[in-house]
Design a protein around this nucleic acid. Structure first.
Lengths: 227, 227
DNA sequence: GTCTATATCTGGATAGAC
DNA sequence: GTCTATCCAGATATAGAC
C-alpha cells in the first residue's frame, strides 16, 4: 500500500503510530539510504543496458538488496526508471541555467564548456542514460525538452545574440553554437569506449582532459572571437 | 540445417538438385530480397530500441514476414544483429578513408565535415545504432575499433600532423580535432529529437542543414586556419 | 522490512506438417 | 519456404509467512 505526496514522490506509511520520533527518524534515514543506493545502481545499470536491457535482478544485486525488497521500495520497473530520469534532467539543465548576460562572453562560454566537459568526466552514466533516452525518441523527457529546455535555450540564444549585436562576438548562429558545445563535450562521455580504443585514454587522465579542453577552446572560440 | 561459408555468411541448400538454373536464380533473387527487407527492418528496430529492447516479433512484422519465417533466414537474434552491424561498420569507416595528404588541408576537412553531416542526415538509423553499440561498451565492434579504426585514425592524424608541420594548419591536436568533427556531425542524427524539440527543425530542412554546416565550418576551421 | 515461494507473461527458438 | 503449435528461459510482479 503506497500513497503519492503532492510532489509525486512515493512514500510508505511504515506503522508510524506508537513510535518515538527518534526511532521514526532513524527508520526514515535508513529508508532514504536504501532508496539512494537503489537509485544509484539503477542509474548505472540502465545507462549500460537501456530500459529494456536492464533487469530488476541485476539492479537489486548491484544495490545489494533482494529483488523482492527492491519491489518494496519501487513498485515497478517503470517507476524506478522514472525516478532516475527525473533526477537526471535537473542535473543536466543546471550548467546552462548559470550562464548570463552579465558575464564577459568569452568567459561565459569558456566556463560553460569546462563545466560540460567536467560533467562528462564525472557523470558518465548520467550522460549515457540521457543519450539513450533521447535516441529512443525521449518518450519520457520529450515534454520537458519541448518546454523547459526550449525556453532555457531560447533565453540563452538571446543572450548570445545580444553579445553579437554589441560586437563582442562575431556573427554565429547561437543555436548551432550551443548544439556544438553539447555535442563535443558529451561525446567524451557517450563514446568514451571509442575514444579509449582510438586514443588509449579517457577524461580521467588529467593530461588528456586538458588536451581535450584546450582543443575545444581553440575550435569553438576562435571562430567567434573578434580581433 | 545451415552451413557457414568461409566468410561466415550463412547459406542454405534449398534443394538445388533437379532445378533449372533459371528457377534457381529466381529463387536466390527472392531470397536476397527478403533478407534485405529483414535487414532493413532490423536496422530500424535495433536502432530505436537497442539489441535487448528490440523483439524479433517487431522486426518480423515490420519486414512483413512471420516470426517463424524470420528465423528461417536468420537463425538467431544475435546473428541478425551481427549482420546489421557488419554492414554498418563498413559504411561508417568509408568517409574517413577518403581524405588524404594529396588534398589541400582546408578542402579535405571541409569535404569530410560535409560528408559526415550528410551521413547524419541520410543514415540516421545507422548513426544511432552505432552510437548504441559504442555506448554499451561496443561488445561486438570493440575489436575492430581497436584495430581497423585505430590504424585508420593514426594514419589520418599523421596526415594532419604533417600539414601542421608544413605550416598549412595551425597547431592543433589531430585526435581531438577528429573527435570534434565526429561529435558535432553525429549529434544531429543521434540527438535529432532534441534538436527538433529545441530548434523545431532537422537536417531534412535544407536551410537548417546549410546553417549547421556553415556553423561547423566556422567553428572548426577558424581555429586552425593560418592567417 | 525482509524473506521464500510462486503466479504470470513475454519473447527467443524449435518441431513437424504442408 | 512457410505455417501452426509449442517449448522453455528469463523477467516482472505478487502472496503470505516471519
Amino acid at each position: 500500500m503506497t500513497e503519492k505526496t503532492a510532489a509525486g514522490k512515493t512514500t510508505r506509511p511504515s506503522g508510524d503510530r506508537n513510535l518515538s520520533s527518534e526511532s521514526l527518524r532513524r527508520r526514515q534515514r535508513h529508508n532514504e539510504k536504501k532508496r539512494d543506493a537503489i537509485l544509484k545502481a539503477a542509474l548505472d545499470v540502465f545507462s549500460r543496458y537501456g530500459l529494456h536491457g536492464a533487469s530488476m535482478d541485476q539492479i537489486a544485486s548491484q544495490a545489494d538488496v533482494s529483488k523482492t525488497n527492491l519491489f518494496y521500495y519501487f513498485s515497478s520497473k517503470e517507476e524506478l526508471y522514472l525516478s532516475v530520469m527525473q533526477k537526471l534532467l535537473t542535473l543536466w539543465l543546471t550548467p546552462l541555467s548559470e550562464f548570463s548576460a552579465a558575464q564577459e562572453p568569452l568567459d561565459a562560454l569558456k566556463d560553460y564548456i569546462r563545466q560540460k566537459l567536467r560533467f562528462s568526466r564525472d557523470h558518465q552514466a548520467e550522460s549515457r542514460l540521457f543519450c539513450m533516452e533521447v535516441m529512443q525518441g525521449a518518450p519520457l523527457l520529450l515534454p520537458q525538452l519541448e518546454t523547459s529546455l526550449r525556453e532555457l535555450v531560447d533565453a540563452k540564444a538571446g543572450v548570445i545574440r545580444e553579445w553579437i549585436n554589441q560586437g563582442k562576438l562575431l556573427e554565429v548562429n547561437p543555436y548551432h553554437l550551443l548544439i556544438s558545445i553539447w555535442a563535443t563535450t558529451q561525446h567524451y562521455a557517450d563514446f568514451s569506449v571509442q575514444v579509449q580504443a582510438v586514443c588509449g585514454q579517457t577524461l580521467d587522465d588529467a593530461a588528456f582532459f586538458d588536451e581535450a579542453l584546450d582543443t575545444l577552446y581553440k575550435l569553438i572560440l576562435s571562430g567567434i572571437t573578434p580581433d
